[in-house]
Design a binder for these strands. Sequence first.
DNA 1: CGCCCCCTTGAAGTGTGTCAAATCGGGTGG
DNA 2: CCACCCGATTTGACACACTTCAAGGGGGCG
Lengths: 243, 243
Amino acid sequence: METSMKLSPVPELLASAVIARLSALAPLDQEEIGAIQSAARLARHHRQHREVQVDRQSARQFLMLSGWACQARTFADGRRQILNLLLPGDLFSTVRQYEPTTDSAIVTFTDAVTCAAPMISPEAERPGLADAYLRSRALREAYLFRHIARLGRLNALERMADWLLEIRERLNLAGLADGARFPLPLTQEALGDTLGLTSVHVNRTLQAMRREGLIDLRSGTVVLLDPDSMASLVSYHPVSIPG
Amino acid sequence: METSMKLSPVPELLASAVIARLSALAPLDQEEIGAIQSAARLARHHRQHREVQVDRQSARQFLMLSGWACQARTFADGRRQILNLLLPGDLFSTVRQYEPTTDSAIVTFTDAVTCAAPMISPEAERPGLADAYLRSRALREAYLFRHIARLGRLNALERMADWLLEIRERLNLAGLADGARFPLPLTQEALGDTLGLTSVHVNRTLQAMRREGLIDLRSGTVVLLDPDSMASLVSYHPVSIPG
DNA sequence: CGCCCCCTTGAAGTGTGTCAAATCGGGTGG
DNA sequence: CCACCCGATTTGACACACTTCAAGGGGGCG
């Protein structure tokens, strides 16, 4: 409960992941960074395992300031599939894709903080921010494609390896990975819902990776002990958005 | 080879799928329809099983005038996963998501015809077209999410049922499905690459669906004999993009 | 201290993959 | 018009990756 409901403790720090990520995607000028920081001052706090409700009147797009969340689809019989992971620094929107309420929603894994994404209304005035949003959306699509290929064609070990490498890459962009070490605040059941596996098999897969000396995973933090051999296992290449 | 390389046989007919689909997404005025038809006059023809190369200088986005294609990822060992199907009327772009040439590309299943998507440069001048593009992109994302849920959590029979219902829905939007009957110009191997299965198991699954009286599939045309029970099998709801 | 959630492990079942061979069907050339 | 060919479909037997069911253990928090 360290992320309490009190208002914005130091907005500069709160927005650091967003600023790191977006300015890695496109250079931002001082005014643009200021716009993000003011937006972060109107942050919304979300407790863990809650559905994220944002009012679509205020904005079309939002920023994850901190915490982990996901878009997930739940089937009638309880099966669940995580569609898209939301990490600190990510830009997201809240289109309800399917009809009924059980279908698709944004749910937090941890306590999280979001805010409306600063608008880019006068077209030419904030070229960096517009460009960063554009690239952020392109990245998002690249990761959706990777997710599809992973679920369709990789086995459990490969899925896990590919996914861990992706998460490191994404956290790294937001300045949240320390080399090959990064936080992983998901239960094995949530991992299963992400990778299309049962939690039991996630457990066995993680055990296998530990035995092979590929990872060290303890108390919500993972270290990739041999990222290179993991990458060659699934011929992993970092995504790169041209032009 | 009936789609030959000769230039645009009656552009009005050529663009009919695009016009049907886009104007179903948002009402288009006469000028906008004219813009599509002129764009279709500069069509590019692609032979089946070829990679689609479009020059990104001419446009960012393109329209499928006719034919079936896909974006697919091929792994180093030959495994292949279809990421996104392109049907007549679809709007698509050609970002290379991954690095090497083997990784992700647009490939035709049949002979196909594409053209550059008419621009929407002066913002207010073509509100219908801009809106249609926006909704087209939202639909595309909804189908990507559906694809993910399918691959992650459905078994072979469910995947096939869900996918067939989706294809009918999409073809229907472009005016290309005749009730529950529609063309399906994919080999069982291509179906496998779409659904994350082997062609052998696709075959067995189709046999099972025939035995159950769910489908009639012969010579590139499928008829859904019992769409309702198929839909309840996977709790299928048509996608709907709000406001 | 005790509860609850999460992780861990085993044994058994099953859906899908693999390998291999036969058949079908449409297009081509003789 | 027939013979051939080659890719696509079909079928069977077997292997194995993953699921299911079930039980036990660990750790944090009230």
